[in-house]
Amino acid sequence: MLFLILPLIAVFMEAFKQGTAVFLSAIMEEETFSAVKLTLLVAAITVPLNVTFGVAAAWAIAKFSFRGKNVLLTLIDLPFAVSPVIAGLIFVLLFGSQGIAYPWLEANDIKIIFAVPGIILATTFVTFPFVARELIPIMEAQGKDEEEAAVSLGASGWKTFLRVTLPNVKWGLLYGVILCNARAMGEFGAVSVVSGHIRGMTNTLPLHVEILYNEYQFAAAFAVATLLAALALVTLIIKSLIEWKTQRESGGEHV
Protein backbone atom coordinates (compact mmCIF):
# COMPACT_ATOMS: atom_id res chain seq x y z
CA MET A 1 0.00 0.00 0.00
CA LEU A 2 2.90 2.27 0.74
CA PHE A 3 3.91 1.64 -2.84
CA LEU A 4 0.69 3.32 -3.95
CA ILE A 5 0.59 6.17 -1.46
CA LEU A 6 4.24 7.16 -1.53
CA PRO A 7 4.05 8.96 -4.88
CA LEU A 8 1.16 11.06 -3.61
CA ILE A 9 3.08 12.07 -0.50
CA ALA A 10 6.15 12.73 -2.59
CA VAL A 11 4.26 15.21 -4.76
CA PHE A 12 3.31 17.33 -1.79
CA MET A 13 6.69 17.03 -0.06
CA GLU A 14 8.61 18.06 -3.15
CA ALA A 15 6.21 20.91 -3.81
CA PHE A 16 6.85 22.49 -0.44
CA LYS A 17 10.53 21.60 -0.22
CA GLN A 18 11.66 25.10 -0.98
CA GLY A 19 8.99 26.72 1.12
CA THR A 20 5.51 28.01 0.71
CA ALA A 21 6.65 31.12 -1.11
CA VAL A 22 8.10 29.18 -4.02
CA PHE A 23 5.02 27.01 -4.08
CA LEU A 24 2.69 29.96 -4.22
CA SER A 25 4.67 31.81 -6.83
CA ALA A 26 4.60 28.75 -9.08
CA ILE A 27 0.87 28.42 -8.67
CA MET A 28 0.20 32.10 -9.16
CA GLU A 29 2.15 32.32 -12.35
CA GLU A 30 0.39 33.50 -15.47
CA GLU A 31 1.22 30.38 -17.47
CA THR A 32 -0.19 28.16 -14.75
CA PHE A 33 -3.38 30.14 -14.88
CA SER A 34 -3.73 29.74 -18.60
CA ALA A 35 -2.99 26.01 -18.27
CA VAL A 36 -5.72 25.69 -15.64
CA LYS A 37 -8.12 27.58 -17.88
CA LEU A 38 -7.38 25.39 -20.87
CA THR A 39 -7.67 22.20 -18.80
CA LEU A 40 -11.05 23.30 -17.49
CA LEU A 41 -12.19 24.25 -20.97
CA VAL A 42 -11.17 20.89 -22.39
CA ALA A 43 -12.98 19.04 -19.63
CA ALA A 44 -16.05 21.25 -19.98
CA ILE A 45 -16.39 20.29 -23.64
CA THR A 46 -15.18 16.70 -23.52
CA VAL A 47 -17.20 15.47 -20.57
CA PRO A 48 -20.66 16.56 -21.81
CA LEU A 49 -19.90 15.11 -25.23
CA ASN A 50 -19.02 11.75 -23.80
CA VAL A 51 -21.90 11.82 -21.33
CA THR A 52 -24.37 12.34 -24.16
CA PHE A 53 -22.76 9.55 -26.09
CA GLY A 54 -22.58 7.27 -23.04
CA VAL A 55 -26.24 7.72 -22.20
CA ALA A 56 -27.35 7.18 -25.80
CA ALA A 57 -25.16 4.12 -26.23
CA ALA A 58 -26.28 2.64 -22.92
CA TRP A 59 -29.94 3.12 -23.82
CA ALA A 60 -29.52 1.45 -27.20
CA ILE A 61 -27.39 -1.39 -25.88
CA ALA A 62 -29.02 -2.12 -22.53
CA LYS A 63 -32.69 -1.71 -23.40
CA PHE A 64 -32.79 -3.39 -26.81
CA SER A 65 -31.50 -6.57 -28.30
CA PHE A 66 -29.93 -6.54 -31.73
CA ARG A 67 -27.39 -8.40 -33.75
CA GLY A 68 -23.79 -7.31 -33.40
CA LYS A 69 -24.17 -6.02 -29.85
CA ASN A 70 -20.92 -7.63 -28.74
CA VAL A 71 -19.06 -6.13 -31.66
CA LEU A 72 -20.37 -2.70 -30.77
CA LEU A 73 -19.34 -3.19 -27.14
CA THR A 74 -15.85 -4.15 -28.22
CA LEU A 75 -15.61 -1.10 -30.48
CA ILE A 76 -16.64 1.16 -27.62
CA ASP A 77 -13.82 -0.34 -25.55
CA LEU A 78 -11.30 0.31 -28.30
CA PRO A 79 -9.93 3.63 -27.04
CA PHE A 80 -8.99 1.94 -23.75
CA ALA A 81 -6.80 -0.46 -25.65
CA VAL A 82 -5.12 2.16 -27.78
CA SER A 83 -1.97 3.79 -26.46
CA PRO A 84 -2.52 7.50 -25.77
CA VAL A 85 0.38 8.29 -28.05
CA ILE A 86 -1.34 6.50 -30.91
CA ALA A 87 -4.55 8.32 -30.07
CA GLY A 88 -2.69 11.57 -30.61
CA LEU A 89 -0.94 10.27 -33.70
CA ILE A 90 -4.12 9.40 -35.55
CA PHE A 91 -5.37 12.96 -35.25
CA VAL A 92 -2.04 14.28 -36.43
CA LEU A 93 -2.29 11.97 -39.43
CA LEU A 94 -5.81 13.19 -40.08
CA PHE A 95 -5.43 16.91 -39.55
CA GLY A 96 -1.67 17.55 -39.29
CA SER A 97 0.48 19.28 -41.88
CA GLN A 98 0.86 16.03 -43.85
CA GLY A 99 -2.65 14.94 -42.99
CA ILE A 100 -5.48 13.94 -45.26
CA ALA A 101 -7.76 16.80 -44.33
CA TYR A 102 -4.98 19.38 -44.15
CA PRO A 103 -5.40 21.05 -47.56
CA TRP A 104 -9.04 21.70 -46.89
CA LEU A 105 -8.36 22.93 -43.36
CA GLU A 106 -5.66 25.27 -44.58
CA ALA A 107 -7.91 26.64 -47.33
CA ASN A 108 -10.49 27.47 -44.69
CA ASP A 109 -7.91 28.68 -42.21
CA ILE A 110 -8.86 26.13 -39.55
CA LYS A 111 -6.18 24.94 -37.19
CA ILE A 112 -6.69 21.70 -35.32
CA ILE A 113 -3.28 20.25 -34.62
CA PHE A 114 -1.09 22.32 -32.31
CA ALA A 115 -4.27 24.09 -31.32
CA VAL A 116 -7.14 23.72 -28.87
CA PRO A 117 -9.49 21.68 -31.15
CA GLY A 118 -6.84 18.97 -31.46
CA ILE A 119 -6.45 18.77 -27.71
CA ILE A 120 -10.20 18.46 -27.32
CA LEU A 121 -10.41 15.76 -30.01
CA ALA A 122 -7.60 13.69 -28.53
CA THR A 123 -9.01 14.01 -25.03
CA THR A 124 -12.49 13.04 -26.20
CA PHE A 125 -10.97 9.98 -27.84
CA VAL A 126 -9.18 8.71 -24.75
CA THR A 127 -12.09 9.39 -22.41
CA PHE A 128 -14.65 8.06 -24.86
CA PRO A 129 -15.65 4.78 -23.13
CA PHE A 130 -15.88 5.91 -19.49
CA VAL A 131 -19.54 6.88 -19.16
CA ALA A 132 -20.86 4.20 -21.50
CA ARG A 133 -18.88 1.51 -19.69
CA GLU A 134 -20.32 2.53 -16.31
CA LEU A 135 -23.91 2.86 -17.49
CA ILE A 136 -24.31 -0.21 -19.69
CA PRO A 137 -23.95 -2.86 -16.96
CA ILE A 138 -26.13 -0.90 -14.54
CA MET A 139 -28.88 -0.36 -17.06
CA GLU A 140 -28.70 -3.96 -18.16
CA ALA A 141 -28.97 -5.19 -14.60
CA GLN A 142 -32.03 -3.06 -13.98
CA GLY A 143 -33.88 -4.57 -16.89
CA LYS A 144 -36.80 -3.01 -18.69
CA ASP A 145 -39.57 -3.65 -16.18
CA GLU A 146 -39.81 -0.16 -14.77
CA GLU A 147 -39.66 1.45 -18.21
CA GLU A 148 -42.37 -0.89 -19.44
CA ALA A 149 -44.51 -0.03 -16.44
CA ALA A 150 -44.03 3.68 -17.10
CA VAL A 151 -44.96 3.36 -20.76
CA SER A 152 -48.00 1.21 -19.96
CA LEU A 153 -49.12 4.04 -17.67
CA GLY A 154 -48.95 6.42 -20.59
CA ALA A 155 -45.55 8.08 -20.13
CA SER A 156 -43.77 9.20 -23.30
CA GLY A 157 -40.30 7.89 -24.12
CA TRP A 158 -38.62 11.07 -23.00
CA LYS A 159 -40.60 11.27 -19.77
CA THR A 160 -39.88 7.61 -19.08
CA PHE A 161 -36.19 8.28 -19.47
CA LEU A 162 -36.17 11.42 -17.34
CA ARG A 163 -38.39 10.21 -14.55
CA VAL A 164 -37.69 6.49 -14.36
CA THR A 165 -34.40 5.56 -16.01
CA LEU A 166 -32.29 8.54 -15.07
CA PRO A 167 -33.05 8.53 -11.32
CA ASN A 168 -32.18 4.85 -11.24
CA VAL A 169 -28.78 5.29 -12.82
CA LYS A 170 -27.87 8.67 -11.39
CA TRP A 171 -25.07 7.37 -9.18
CA GLY A 172 -23.59 5.27 -11.94
CA LEU A 173 -23.77 8.26 -14.24
CA LEU A 174 -22.03 10.50 -11.72
CA TYR A 175 -19.41 7.82 -11.23
CA GLY A 176 -18.73 7.71 -14.96
CA VAL A 177 -18.65 11.49 -15.13
CA ILE A 178 -16.02 11.94 -12.43
CA LEU A 179 -13.81 9.21 -13.88
CA CYS A 180 -14.19 10.73 -17.33
CA ASN A 181 -13.41 14.15 -15.90
CA ALA A 182 -10.33 12.97 -14.02
CA ARG A 183 -8.92 11.42 -17.14
CA ALA A 184 -9.85 14.40 -19.30
CA MET A 185 -8.05 16.80 -16.99
CA GLY A 186 -5.08 14.51 -16.43
CA GLU A 187 -4.51 13.16 -19.93
CA PHE A 188 -0.92 13.55 -20.96
CA GLY A 189 0.27 11.28 -23.76
CA ALA A 190 -2.40 11.97 -26.37
CA VAL A 191 -2.51 15.68 -25.64
CA SER A 192 1.25 15.89 -25.71
CA VAL A 193 1.28 14.65 -29.30
CA VAL A 194 -1.27 17.10 -30.65
CA SER A 195 -0.63 20.20 -28.55
CA GLY A 196 2.71 21.45 -29.83
CA HIS A 197 3.49 22.67 -26.31
CA ILE A 198 2.87 26.31 -27.00
CA ARG A 199 3.19 28.03 -23.68
CA GLY A 200 0.21 29.98 -22.53
CA MET A 201 -1.69 28.75 -25.59
CA THR A 202 -1.94 25.00 -25.87
CA ASN A 203 -0.57 23.92 -22.55
CA THR A 204 -2.78 21.90 -20.28
CA LEU A 205 -1.80 21.31 -16.67
CA PRO A 206 -0.07 17.96 -17.21
CA LEU A 207 1.91 19.42 -20.11
CA HIS A 208 2.85 22.40 -18.01
CA VAL A 209 4.16 20.03 -15.34
CA GLU A 210 6.31 18.33 -17.93
CA ILE A 211 7.76 21.56 -19.27
CA LEU A 212 8.64 22.83 -15.82
CA TYR A 213 10.16 19.49 -14.92
CA ASN A 214 12.26 19.33 -18.05
CA GLU A 215 13.50 22.84 -17.33
CA TYR A 216 14.66 21.60 -13.92
CA GLN A 217 12.18 23.82 -12.12
CA PHE A 218 11.37 20.88 -9.88
CA ALA A 219 9.64 22.76 -7.08
CA ALA A 220 7.41 24.57 -9.55
CA ALA A 221 6.65 21.35 -11.43
CA PHE A 222 5.62 19.64 -8.23
CA ALA A 223 3.64 22.67 -7.13
CA VAL A 224 1.55 22.51 -10.28
CA ALA A 225 1.38 18.75 -9.87
CA THR A 226 -0.27 19.21 -6.47
CA LEU A 227 -3.24 20.75 -8.27
CA LEU A 228 -3.63 17.58 -10.30
CA ALA A 229 -2.98 15.37 -7.29
CA ALA A 230 -5.70 17.24 -5.42
CA LEU A 231 -8.00 16.58 -8.35
CA ALA A 232 -7.17 12.88 -8.08
CA LEU A 233 -7.90 12.91 -4.36
CA VAL A 234 -11.23 14.65 -4.82
CA THR A 235 -12.09 12.14 -7.53
CA LEU A 236 -11.28 9.23 -5.24
CA ILE A 237 -13.28 10.71 -2.39
CA ILE A 238 -16.37 11.30 -4.52
CA LYS A 239 -15.97 7.82 -5.97
CA SER A 240 -15.82 6.25 -2.51
CA LEU A 241 -18.83 8.28 -1.42
CA ILE A 242 -20.83 7.05 -4.38
CA GLU A 243 -19.81 3.47 -3.72
CA TRP A 244 -20.75 3.83 -0.10
CA LYS A 245 -24.09 5.37 -0.97
CA THR A 246 -25.06 2.79 -3.58
CA GLN A 247 -23.97 -0.05 -1.30
CA ARG A 248 -26.13 1.33 1.47
CA GLU A 249 -29.09 1.72 -0.85
CA SER A 250 -28.85 -1.78 -2.23
CA GLY A 251 -28.12 -3.13 1.24
CA GLY A 252 -31.25 -1.50 2.66
CA GLU A 253 -33.46 -3.14 0.13
CA HIS A 254 -34.72 -6.52 1.15
CA VAL A 255 -36.23 -8.10 -1.88
Partner: peptide, 23 residues
Amino acid sequence: IDGIVDLPFALPTAVGGIALTSI
Protein backbone atom coordinates in the same frame (compact mmCIF):
# COMPACT_ATOMS: atom_id res chain seq x y z
CA ILE B 1 -7.35 1.17 1.31
CA ASP B 2 -10.15 0.24 -1.06
CA GLY B 3 -10.27 3.81 -2.30
CA ILE B 4 -6.52 4.24 -2.58
CA VAL B 5 -6.25 1.20 -4.87
CA ASP B 6 -7.70 3.37 -7.61
CA LEU B 7 -5.13 6.11 -7.12
CA PRO B 8 -3.14 5.10 -10.20
CA PHE B 9 -6.35 5.47 -12.24
CA ALA B 10 -7.14 8.88 -10.83
CA LEU B 11 -3.66 10.37 -10.63
CA PRO B 12 -2.64 11.99 -13.91
CA THR B 13 0.15 9.93 -15.40
CA ALA B 14 2.55 12.85 -15.66
CA VAL B 15 2.18 13.50 -11.93
CA GLY B 16 2.70 9.83 -11.18
CA GLY B 17 5.74 9.88 -13.41
CA ILE B 18 7.55 12.75 -11.75
CA ALA B 19 6.62 11.55 -8.28
CA LEU B 20 7.94 8.04 -8.90
CA THR B 21 11.09 9.48 -10.39
CA SER B 22 11.76 11.60 -7.32
CA ILE B 23 11.21 8.61 -5.02
